[in-house]
Design a protein around this nucleic acid. Structure first.
Lengths: 243, 243
DNA sequence: GCAAAAGTGTTCGGGCTACACCCATGA
DNA sequence: TCATGGGTGTAGCCCGAACACTTTTGC
């Protein structure tokens, strides 16, 4: 705070020494990218075409640059793979074992991102040799990435209980059966559809549209939209989302 | 994984180049150290006798060394201040704004620790000019440390709802009124003492001792101990702690 | 008209909340 | 004997869980 007005070269010498005594480490970010295909929760993984562990499956990641924030690095790296900006991302955890990356001492800040499974840039994705995997069948990943995935799933489950983040995984307009299937997939449960609609509709955060969608040549379902404004208003009034 | 058998000098050249292209950053850890004095939730802060921001109040922190894990660094730093080992600590969040530390580009991994307020090494604490502050009256801290404290409080509140971590802040033997006061302090509420004891005792994780304690010359209260073995057993049976 | 998924209400029980009085002790 | 905090039980209400049948459409 006190020193914000110094340019780097002007720091008092003792301050420069204070930092210079210490080690500097590579700082990576890795992204657990979730999607939802209508039935299963999915994960976007890349096949590494670079060392170390070339040819293995891996989370998308990259190194934090000196002049960017860690959050910005995470967004930049998500953009590089998907072409998407302004995506819901949460910092998950910092993984800091000195042996976790055999190539060099690298700590990694893992994030998880929720994207709509149809709205990404397919050209970028194929350029990175990326593929979607069901969370039921995740391959062996490099380093500690499987642990990151497990931790991300757990964090997503916790978060989705108390925050309306499921909508980040669905298209703008969706049906109640779709929404229920999403929560079924997240929690590997089979929610009761009556109780589920009662609960979600009673919150008053869904706007029912005057449109229906014909699913697979059966009875069409009503479309809904998540009403963000209404949700924020309710938050101010002390409302608490909960599944 | 594949490269674990290489010593650093033997890495393939392309791997060394892969890392060498990137920036290395200072990585700090900062600890939000909580205690409980019987009435209020307390925070252990140091007055910095080193630059930058010498003389200001600050969380205890330090830099991660190349050969230690981030968790180890956090434990080492907690030990340096308190002389305590094997303390309950949770990683909180990584703070990665490039301007957060005006001295140099430093990311910080914040932790929170729960210690018993009477069991620390007073000599070390005074050597670091450290003092306890009530969470009601936290002074202005350096950098983004106030934000860390707020985030740690929020995380502690969330965690303590679902995990029996409150006991980390109490002596081995404690009374129900003490425990209630602790939760009162954490949530800034006034729990109903009847409902509180009903709930906590019904979980079956407290062992009632055949001892009483004379508080302050009033009616003595029964002492209890948190039964860790029983708790772990219950966990296996699907039990879920909850306040 | 039949197959397939959408949509809709009620009942029951358990848990949370609110609430007030007596008890044990030290001064 | 009085002041102080420890300790205990009950009743109402709300919310979550369980559960089945009718409706709409395409084929």
């Amino acid at each position: 705070m006190l020193y914000l007005h110094f340019k780097e070269k002007e720091y008092p010498l003792k301050m420069k020494n204070f930092y210079a005594r210490h080690d500097r480490l590579y700082v990576a970010v890795d992204s657990v990218i979730f999607g939802f295909d209508g039935e299963q929760l999915m994960l976007l993984l890349i096949r590494r075409n670079f060392e170390p562990c070339k040819g293995s499956w891996s989370l998308m990641g990259g190194f934090v640059k000196k002049e960017e924030s860690v959050d910005e690095a995470a967004s930049r790296i998500l953009y590089a793979l998907t072409g998407l900006k302004d995506i819901y991302m949460e910092q998950l955890h910092c993984y800091g074992d000195p042996l976790r990356d055999p190539g060099a001492r690298t700590i990694s800040i893992a994030y998880y991102a929720l994207i709509k499974v149809n709205e990404y840039d397919r050209e970028r994705v194929s350029r990175h040799n990326a593929q979607w995997f069901s969370i039921q069948s995740i391959p062996a990943l490099v380093f500690d990435h499987n642990r990151m995935v497990n931790d991300a799933l757990e964090a997503l489950r916790q978060k989705a209980k108390h925050q309306p983040i499921g909508f980040e995984l669905l298209p703008e307009k969706f049906t109640l059966p779709q929404l229920k299937k999403l929560y079924d997939a997240i929690y590997q449960k089979n929610f009761d559809k009556r109780n589920f609609s009662k609960k979600i509709l009673s919150m008053g955060i869904l706007e029912r549209l005057n449109e229906k969608v014909k699913n697979h040549s059966i009875r069409p379902a009503s479309l809904y939209r998540f009403d963000r404004k209404r949700y924020k208003q309710l938050l101010k009034e002390g409302f608490h989302f909960g599944i």
